[in-house]
């Protein structure tokens, strides 16, 4: 009886609830709280889908991770179709080597996808950052393959509205503004399931870009009492 079960397990014909076979190779994101929440950190390769408004700290959140990758890997970082001009002073101040960064401003969304695929599969880039609102499943699959081939990580920044489709990405995060920093919700992560929200306190990382708690209207865990009286 047991033998049969072992046999079936070995053949991978039985799925178990606690099955955790394909754990992602992960690296620390630079924030211990977030690492604990993500059970290890951010993926080393693949596609990281980030739903976020522009200007709430979505790029700053990943800078420690990107910097660590740049120092370790000595490869290029490519920024494709940023919504505004990239400020080199800020990146230099954060410790990035500017000659290891390329910015690509394609003329069309088609060119942007092409550039992203080339960068990912060339093996010359440790990370590719792109701003791409419209993505389809077959495009994501293709980019995932390219990322695997070139051992590269693709950060895709998208607006929160385009949230309906579930894409075959490695990890999908939803970012929301918070007075103290930024709150992160994991939409999807290969290998595990954790739907909780975590709010990172960024007071020590970006002191001028946080507001004291007193100004906050409500804390995350409070439910406002209804104003209208129920008779």
């Amino acid at each position: 009886m047991n033998n049969i079960l072992d046999y079936l397990k070995n053949k991978q014909l039985v799925w178990q609830g606690n099955h955790n076979n394909n754990v992602l190779a992960a690296q620390s994101s630079g924030y211990p709280e977030l690492d604990a929440h993500l059970e290890g950190g951010l993926p080393e390769q693949g596609m990281l889908d980030i739903h976020s408004d522009t200007g709430i700290g979505e790029l700053r959140l990943f800078l420690p991770y990107l910097l660590q990758r740049q120092i370790q890997q000595q490869r290029l970082m490519v920024i494709i179709a940023p919504p505004l001009q990239i400020n080199s002073e800020m990146l230099a101040e954060a410790g990035f080597a500017l000659e290891r960064i390329l910015v690509i401003q394609p003329d069309s969304a088609q060119d942007a996808l092409w550039a992203a695929e080339q960068c990912l599969k060339s093996g010359c880039c440790h990370s590719v950052l792109s701003w791409q609102n419209e993505l389809e499943i077959h495009q994501v699959k293709r980019l995932q393959l390219a990322a695997k081939q070139g051992n590269s990580l693709h950060f895709v920044f998208r607006n929160q509205q385009n949230n309906s489709l579930s894409l075959p990405v490695t990890m999908s995060l939803q970012l929301a503004p918070s007075h103290e920093g930024i709150s992160i919700k994991i939409n999807k992560r290969i290998g595990s399931w954790n739907n909780n929200k975590v709010t990172l306190n960024m007071r020590q990382h970006w002191p001028v870009l946080t507001q004291p708690e007193t100004q906050a209207t409500y804390a995350d865990n409070l439910i406002p009492f209804p104003n209208r009286r129920v008779s």
Binding site: R75, S88, L91, V103, D111, Q118, C124, Q149, G150
Partner: peptide, 27 residues
């Protein structure tokens, strides 16, 4: 990782996208 060297890779991007669309950061 790949068959391309970095310079080859950049020239490939430039050939398709145009020299003006592949930029580096300066201070």
């Amino acid at each position: 990782q790949g068959a391309l060297s970095e310079a080859q890779f950049i020239s490939q991007l430039q050939a398709k996208l145009g020299n003006d669309n592949v930029r580096s950061l300066l201070l």
